[in-house]
Write a protein that binds this DNA or RNA. Structure first.
Lengths: 352, 352
DNA sequence: CTGAAAGCGCTTACAG
DNA sequence: CTGAAAGCGCTTACAG
């Protein structure tokens, strides 16, 4: 019953090379203590036979546990966004723990750079084999990555990218294009005066993600030479009071604003404001599949949510580490997530 | 180094039950030849220890190959829709073939019921352990499923469901809601007279899928008591001539139609017609991420495509079989796919 | 009805 | 620099 599927194993390689399988094993894993000559002989046979290691057997025999660190923002009362990537990570872990893989989660505070550095140091002490990272703080992330480079620890980015960095890969949104899509959706809701407001609500001064989003947003109008007046506002504090105060002011100055585009997941606080202000005439678009956002989406206060599959980012991020570390197969350097459009009507079936 | 992760195996069960591991194995797999007494004893220990079998070891030791049949429509020149599910199936196979799983693909002709029955019989002869099925022909599918029930072969449906059938699960769209979303999207493009055309292009008389879609589509307007005149047309042949003829007629009778909703993936032929007829003023919505559709989407002839992740349907469908057959873990009876909204702007990042 | 033993394709000490 | 042997947690004949 030998079909074309005949796979040769270490035994056959050893037989052909006239060595023991222990030596074959050494060559396969690049372990020292093999003469160049036998090494070459074995490698040639490996190529000739197109040897594919049996991951099952390998993981079964090796009682080593591979530890992967995950460093992402802590879920705060302010937003439950980071629940989703964590869920994805956990799902990945439960799928691959049978291969002896263990996940060590670390969390930092999005309002505190120091907590990031702190956790990063903790990770380095743990001697993990790979890291999944949300590089929210660019400089601090750069430092961590430099350290990992020296230790040859692969790092995967999710949610946002730090370009020109020697990481394993990035799995997340194409922010520019995402803003572009946002603009397109917004045009569906424009009526006469074509005046829109872009809102960025964030305490973090160093988060440049929204710049790319806003860039894409503005580009849409440029590309389509649509006459559209864009007002913008930065709300530097995330609490209800600040949001209310700032929005009240801008809407007083520009009562003819037709639509609002929020560059991140805090669109719910704008929705809440509009609801209280009785401005249901203003269309609203923002980001992310948060519980609060969905509530306003269902109520009709939010017209569209754009979403980049945060759960899948976590899942795929961890699987990318697994792929290099265990399977030794290559991973794509950049993997953009889809730009999902969520409305009241299709939200029930959305998969993060 | 014994943390809470201590997992007991067959050896420990055997030791505690004072039997050999062969007997434990018999009980685990419900194989005959064990006295009720020892069976009970072993089962009790299994429960007490919360025994989790090691799939790796199990698949490694068992040299049995599990064969799964896939029965889906053949990719025709008319449409490449079924490429995607097949791709998903292949991707699943390459992930799990290391567990000794083999996929046997079978194809039928969507214009020929007989070819379905023929292939179904071939599958039954092959003695496969599971079937992934696109139940395009309802009666014929029912027959196949009845046969599988007797043989205790699990069957997974994708793309469309056959309700009240004892299959393992359904993985596919919620058609009603999908039509509902289509209607919502269409309203974005409506201007004055609110007159829309619903087009169903299909040779198959027995495909009821579009009825559910149309139902959802109409329900949207009912729910929102929007004044909207809905014209409908059935185009019974898929060739260009028929489509042109029928559409020319209906647009002559109703020159004030503002938007067209096509209930399936043949929206490209309507787009092609509109382009040639110079009716770029008419908005167009349809289904599926086909090459031709994307071309028209990019050109702006199609406004929205709705898509239900056909590749993922194939992938998940096969994985569902793997889950029951190999892992023995339960699968959800119905798994609805997201209702994805594709526009010119986000199409580049869409993942089928 | 039950068990001893070999084997799946690897890895891991240990010995030389 | 290299090999013989035991073992990972199961399954599979085979023998009784």
């Amino acid at each position: 019953m030998k079909d074309e599927n005949t796979h040769y194993g270490v035994k056959e390689i050893a037989r052909r090379a006239n060595v023991s399988i222990a030596t074959v094993d050494r060559v396969i894993h690049n372990r020292p203590g093999v003469s160049e000559k036998t090494k070459k002989k074995i490698n040639d046979i490996i190529i000739e036979l197109d040897y594919q290691p049996n991951v099952l057997a390998s993981r079964l025999a090796s009682r080593k546990i591979i530890s992967l660190a995950v460093l992402i923002p802590r879920v705060s009362e302010e937003t439950d966004f980071w629940e989703a990537p964590l869920r994805g990570v956990m799902r990945a872990e439960s799928e691959i723990k049978k291969y002896g893989i263990q996940v060590l989660p670390f969390f930092f505070d999005l309002n505190d750079k120091h907590s990031f550095t702190e956790q990063a140091e903790l990770i380095l002490k743990k001697e993990v084999q790979g890291i999944l990272l949300a590089p929210s703080f660019i400089e601090e992330s750069r430092q961590l990555i430099t350290a990992c480079q020296k230790l040859k620890i692969p790092v995967v980015f999710i949610d946002s990218n730090v370009p020109e960095q020697d990481n394993l890969c990035y799995i997340g949104p194409h922010l520019f294009q995402s803003g572009y899509v946002g603009a397109k959706l917004l045009t569906y809701r424009l009526k006469e005066n074509h005046k829109v407001l872009v809102v960025n609500i964030s305490k973090e001064k160093d988060n440049y993600s929204y710049l790319q989003i806003e860039d894409g947003f503005r580009s849409y109008f440029k590309d389509h030479s649509q006459p559209c007046e864009i007002i913008r506002i930065d709300i530097k504090d995330t609490d209800k009071l600040s949001v209310t105060k700032d929005l009240t002011r801008v809407l007083f100055e520009h009562p003819d604003i037709e639509a609002i585009f929020v560059t991140n997941s805090r669109v719910f606080s704008v929705a809440s404001f509009l609801e209280n202000a009785g401005r249901k005439d203003i269309s609203l678009i923002g980001y992310d599949f948060l519980k609060e956002n969905i509530r306003f989406l269902k109520e009709g206060m939010i017209d569209f949510l754009i979403c980049h599959k945060p759960e899948e980012q976590g899942f795929r991020g961890l699987m990318a580490l697994y792929q290099t570390l265990v399977l030794g197969s290559p991973v794509e350097k950049v993997h953009f997530m889809p730009i999902d459009i969520i409305t009241k009507e299709n939200q029930a079936f959305y998969q993060n």
